[in-house]
């Protein structure tokens, strides 16, 4: 589904890293790391986070950024929670659950649309527009939840976060489907082609007649919808929505995206790289946990890894430039 271009050096590096981490952890703690329970708990844990990274990645491909992903996810989830627990008499009915889920996506799309409109029509730089909406959405979340946690979802809704289909955790299934769809959208459709072109060279995109306003608007809506899926999983997994949930996710998901090879200047990056980055980071986190490091060692290793990977890339690029002269086309990553 997602074509793994192994010719790409960054993807190759990431694959090697993911496999190495996986092997190292398997050898160090064979009985625990490779156990069914551990792999299962990993695949329940990472999808919400990976979806947020996916959401920020699509905007980074256009050369923008979406700082409002976590607030969007929480605002969407709290809309679903309110609809489910306070509006319907019988919250466990299929209709109530279905409507709650639909409301989550609708709010996600709406939030994305607001970001897109601010960026396209008011021409506010993406980082500022989404810094503003981040505060705005998160404030609205606190306002509608009254600052407390909302809970009391129906069993049908909780199924989305805690159960398995054919042995596969539902959050994992949702993530695989969405990552696959996003990958297809980016590599197989005109929209994806234009999105990459716009991110790589906005001027060339304009001269080739691409409606960049429309592409940008759709990208931010896509980001909002992907974030709302993350909100859905968060709510279903913990059976609650709380305005403070996942506060550390924002900067971490940008870190994952960059480590996955998404160029923050736009135009370059693959969904496959992102998936590999999420997996290797999750393996590291879970492995460190098993080796009885403090839970904060994860932050240390993730941050260090990002810097090392980037520094190696830059060093290689500089050496290549020196060898062949600076006229060689820069591949940006």
């Amino acid at each position: 589904m997602i074509r793994l271009k192994v010719s790409d050096p960054h993807t190759r590096l990431l694959m090697a890293m993911t496999v190495a981490v996986f092997l190292a952890m398997s050898l160090l703690k064979p009985g625990v790391f490779l156990s069914w329970n551990n792999l299962r708990s990993i695949s329940f844990q990472f999808p919400e986070f990976a979806l947020l990274a996916l959401a920020v990645s699509v905007t980074m491909l256009t050369g923008g950024i979406d700082l409002s992903i976590v607030s969007t996810a929480l605002l969407a989830a709290s809309a679903g929670a309110i609809l489910q627990t306070q509006v319907f008499e019988n919250p466990s009915s299929l209709a109530a659950t279905g409507l709650a889920v639909a409301a989550i996506f609708a709010v996600g799309a709406l939030c994305g649309g607001v970001n897109g409109a601010l960026i396209v029509h008011l021409r506010i730089p993406p980082i500022l527009a989404t810094l503003g909406t981040m505060q705005l959405f998160s404030g609205l979340t606190i306002a509608v939840t009254g600052g407390t946690a909302l809970y009391g979802f129906s069993d049908r809704f909780l199924f989305l976060g805690n159960s398995s289909i054919l042995g596969l955790p539902v959050p994992l299934v949702i993530f695989v489907l969405l990552a696959g769809l996003t990958g297809l959208l980016l590599t197989r459709t005109g929209f994806g082609f234009k999105l990459y072109l716009l991110g790589g060279n906005p001027r060339a995109a304009r001269f080739s007649g691409i409606n960049s306003a429309q592409i940008l608007l759709r990208t931010y809506i896509l980001s909002g919808v992907l974030a709302s899926f993350a909100g859905l999983i968060m709510a279903a997994r913990s059976n609650s929505v709380n305005a403070d949930y996942g506060a550390s996710y924002l900067l971490l998901s940008i870190l994952v995206a960059v480590l996955g090879g998404i160029n923050p200047d736009g135009g370059f990056g693959r969904i496959s790289g992102l998936v590999l980055a999420v997996l290797s980071l999750q393996f590291i986190a879970s492995g460190l946990n098993m080796l009885r490091f403090s839970s904060f060692a994860k932050d240390l290793v993730w941050g260090g890894l990002l810097l090392v990977v980037l520094a190696v890339h830059q060093a290689v690029k500089n050496r290549r430039n020196r060898a062949t002269g600076p006229l060689v086309a820069e591949d940006k990553r």
């Binding site: 971490l252 870190l255 260090g304 980037l310």
Partner: peptide
Amino acid sequence: LFIAWLRLPTLIVTLGTLSLFRGAMLT
């Protein structure tokens, strides 16, 4: 070191060091 000498983007570098410094302190 990363920004001036390796010329890496400032946002990315400081995102990394945010996580690195905090993790180092807590660990």
